[in-house]
Design a protein around this nucleic acid. Structure first.
Lengths: 176, 176
DNA sequence: CGATGACTTGGACGCTCGCCCAAGTCAAGC
DNA sequence: GCTTGACTTGGGCGAGCGTCCAAGTCATCG
């Protein structure tokens, strides 16, 4: 419901109405709205990381270059299929950054992303310690761009270009 | 004031109080709050693009590799000096994406960013048509990461790594 | 001088927000 | 059967929101 309508629209009344329960019940289940948001972020991040790992482990790897490109395509597919989830992820980050009591929640979120990315890259045979930050940064940027202009071709092209730069398939000029 | 307190805190009352004028005057100056936001985004984007261009044109270019690295460092410096402005930029994008009447505002914002990036890259001697999207995506991603964890070293390292991949200084293995 | 119109103001409209409370329901344990 | 305590509820608290309006100020101009 949050991914459908946005964090700003997720009032305690809207949430409880969606769940078909009385609004008063909200503060019986959660101490405050911040507590709910904490749980939402933790659950969402856990799901994202585990499903990304499962997707990478599920696909057969035929060399770091090819599988990196495949993984990037899979991410693009997920983005196109579930745009609201990705937008929600950024909304929650910013909500946390602007809300005093939730400042460290965003940090936890991205720590989990970076750890997850490191694990995914390791599964692809890429162990460079600076790689996770680079990959997460590029994915975030491409995602944000696509959420804005919905240009799938351009987004995929950027990902392909990055894959070529970052993990060239086999060798640049040999045995094409 | 928006960059200081966030978009959510920018109510018409907060804005007019900050400006030292009566709240009623807001709707004499602007038809609605959406109209103000439109002007804010347009002004902000214009300033960002022109100042980025001025910075690149101001620095002497000594080859695409070196100047690209310099430009990325300059961006990192601006980010560290004015974090709220960058956060505001993302907040406005998301506010626009979630607000029905403002949907195309985000598209205009990123169109301007991409055009600006293309111009900056052209000034650096990089004319690859896919380059602006790649660079803007990476800058957005690195910026978001830094806004969350405030790790300057890591952010600069990622930018350097990208500069090496994207526009290698002179030649990879010759005349170092 | 009197009228016009741009500009400013305090106050109000109806609405939503997070949070809280007194009262109620109802199965479990004595 | 009675008490306990987890659970649920409608209603209300004070506050803030975007927007609007009648009334007021005041320089300009016939």
């Amino acid at each position: 419901m949050m991914s459908r309508d946005g964090v700003a629209a997720a009032s305690t009344r809207a949430i409880t109405t969606e769940a078909g329960m009385a609004q008063s019940r909200f503060h019986y289940c959660f101490r405050s709205k911040a507590e709910l948001l904490r749980e939402v972020v933790e659950t969402m991040v856990r799901n994202q990381v585990t499903s990304a790992l499962a997707a990478v482990r599920g696909a057969p790897a035929v060399g770091p270059g090819a599988s990196a490109s495949t993984a990037l395509r899979a991410y693009a597919q997920h983005l196109v299929d579930h745009p609201e989830q990705h937008l929600l992820s950024y909304e929650l980050t910013q909500y946390a950054l602007r809300t005093p009591g939730l400042a460290q929640l965003a940090a936890q979120q991205y720590e989990a992303y970076l750890d997850g990315a490191a694990e995914v890259l390791a599964a692809l045979g890429i162990t460079d310690p600076s790689a996770p930050r680079l990959v997460v940064a590029l994915l975030d940027g491409v995602t944000l761009q696509w959420l804005v202009d919905r240009d799938v071709e351009a987004a995929v092209a950027v990902l392909e270009r990055f894959a070529d730069l970052f993990a060239p398939p086999m060798r640049p000029r040999r045995a094409g």
